[in-house]
């Protein structure tokens, strides 16, 4: 098909599989680290608040490919042999935790203060207030921006090409070297990225509309 064999398309799909794996690892890792970051950002403790804010600004101030380089080459200098997947996953975790932490901080703060107050007046402890009153409302607010950010994660996994991780972009690059059909191959890669991202953005948009209707 268009001078590229079915096997070769299959090679792209293999790359897409690893893109999905890396995206998932980045998202899960980003959630595990990002949630405490969000909580620290809203905490009243001076140190937690400053430290998490510094973390977010630091990570957001570094280009993702550079994070990838630092993790991949930086760590191996100290004698740890990290493979590209682990390095890329760590880099994606750092990157997404900074953004998710900031997004979720906003979602928690979007729940009106009067909800905290109402819980407080019913003698709920601050932990109970957070778990039973604030969190369920914040989660609902958080779905659209979180899914939206998932699209960013999927697209940005392509930077792992700089450390030689075999993902969709990397497989397209290899295939191009073998076939010299850059337009066909990179268009095919673009379509695969789009096929992953488009449903996600559609879902985020639908959920957002539903949420706005409820609030109207």
């Amino acid at each position: 098909m268009l001078g590229v064999s079915l096997d070769q398309y299959g090679f792209l799909v293999q790359g897409a599989f690893w893109t999905a794996v890396l995206s998932l690892m980045g998202f899960v890792g980003g959630t595990i680290v990002g949630l405490p970051v969000a909580l620290a950002r809203i905490s009243r403790g001076w140190f937690l608040c400053r430290a998490s804010s510094a973390y977010v600004q630091f990570v957001q101030g570094i280009p993702l490919p550079v994070i990838m380089f630092v993790v991949y080459f930086g760590v191996s200098i100290y004698g740890f042999d990290v493979n590209a997947l682990v390095a890329a996953a760590i880099a994606m975790t750092l990157y997404s935790s900074a953004y998710l932490g900031e997004i979720w901080k906003g979602c928690i703060q979007a729940v009106p203060n009067t909800q905290w107050e109402a819980g407080e007046c019913l003698a709920l402890t601050s932990l109970q207030r957070f778990i039973y009153v604030i969190l369920p409302q914040a989660l609902r607010i958080a779905v659209p921006p979180t899914v939206g950010f998932l699209v960013q994660i999927v697209k940005n996994t392509s930077y792992s090409v700089v450390i030689g991780f075999f993902d969709l972009t990397y497989s397209a690059k290899i295939l191009n070297n073998a076939t010299f059909k850059p337009f066909v191959i990179f268009t095919a890669a673009a379509l695969i990225y789009f096929a992953i991202c488009f449903p996600l953005s559609r879902y985020a948009r639908r959920f957002e509309l539903r949420l706005n209707r409820r609030n109207a």
């Binding site: 819980g119 007046c121 709920l124 109970q128 009153v133 369920p136 409302q137 609902r140």
Partner: peptide, 27 residues
């Protein structure tokens, strides 16, 4: 001491019954 506010401040994600029973159950 119970307090009722001008703006109700009910928990929007809970049913009426859950609103009423949250504190008695947890506290």
């Amino acid at each position: 001491v119970g307090i009722v506010f001008q703006s109700y401040n009910l928990f929007p994600h809970l049913t009426v019954e859950q609103n009423v029973t949250l504190a008695p159950r947890k506290v």
